[in-house]
């Protein structure tokens, strides 16, 4: 039996969709073993096509980043730091203490509280579900590509030819189809260490805070939660525990939803429009 067994929120049936309960993912790299079961489960369940195979750096990362055909992405960080109370020794040719750590984190769409992709979508293809997740309705999306530049986390992308269903925008669905039937998202279901935990958002937030404390006490001084509640994104439903700075994970330290830029941009647009009209009228009034 793994973890809490069938008592775990990752394994038991639920009725969150019917009860309209906000749910989330808590992803914890301190227990992740980098097995990529989540990536595989996601691809298999959602029938996401193969989109190439390239290694990053010296690591075992062969997917690079989230995209139209990568909805879970296991990151392999190589850092010259200690991991908790890890004992370090000389590495390579020198005798100096040379700490090295490997951190695995399964990245996913953040299902933002204020989602840039959702606000930007001009077709209404992207919607908020009963459980608070952000869903792209593939049959509505016309592939305008505006969500792609409006996601502050670089998650959603337009799927290129010649892949199946090309031209539309794709990202993690939070396995909305499974959730409607009381099932747990595929990635959380298969995670052998419960590095990915699925459950009620409020429970998860409490669990995350507790886990950070636990880790700090056992020497992981740089453990922190990544959940930008202080910025205009106002928190994410799929949040992470990270060791070290968000930048190393390719996570923006202060993500902002682009709609906060609308006011100044529209003001400038209206001012320019009116100035142009006045210029045209003045030109004809004074120069003809």
């Amino acid at each position: 039996m793994i973890g809490e067994g069938i008592q775990s929120t990752n394994q038991r049936k639920h009725s969150y969709v019917q009860d309209r309960v906000e749910v989330g993912f808590f992803t914890d790299p301190s227990v992740c073993i980098g097995c990529k079961a989540c990536e595989v489960a996601c691809k298999e369940w959602n029938q996401v096509p193969d989109d190439g195979f390239t290694w990053s750096g010296n690591s075992y990362d062969n997917t690079g980043h989230l995209g139209a055909s990568t909805w879970r992405h296991v990151m392999f960080l190589e850092q010259d730091r200690q991991k908790g109370n890890q004992i370090t020794g000389p590495m390579g040719l020198t005798e100096a203490e040379d700490p090295f750590r490997w951190v695995f984190l399964s990245d996913v769409c953040k299902h933002c509280e204020e989602a840039g992709c959702l606000e930007a979508c001009p077709t209404g293809s992207i919607v908020r579900t009963e459980v608070g997740s952000v869903l792209v309705q593939n049959d509505v999306c016309n592939g305008c590509g505006y969500c792609v530049v409006s996601c502050p986390f670089g998650v959603i992308d337009r799927r290129p030819e010649p892949l199946p269903d090309a031209g539309g925008a794709f990202k993690c669905t939070f396995c909305y189809d499974r959730q409607k039937s009381g099932l747990v998202p595929a990635c959380a279901k298969v995670c052998p260490t419960e590095s990915i935990v699925f459950g009620r958002l409020d429970d998860l937030r409490a669990r995350g805070a507790e886990r950070v404390q636990q880790l700090q006490q056992s020497g992981y001084n740089d453990a922190q939660l990544y959940d930008p509640t202080e910025t205009s994104v106002r928190g994410i439903h799929a949040f992470f525990l990270i060791l070290g700075e968000p930048e190393a994970y390719g996570l923006p330290p202060k993500p902002q939803i682009p709609t906060i830029y609308l006011k100044s941009a529209w003001t400038s647009a209206f001012a320019t429009a009116i100035a142009s009209l006045i210029a045209a009228l003045a030109a004809f009034a004074f120069f003809s």
Partner: peptide, 17 residues
């Protein structure tokens, strides 16, 4: 063994248009 690119292996943080 430690990559020295910015961010995560120099991967984009946001998606280009």
């Amino acid at each position: 063994p430690i990559p020295r690119q910015p961010g995560y292996y120099g991967q984009p943080v946001v998606k280009p248009p």
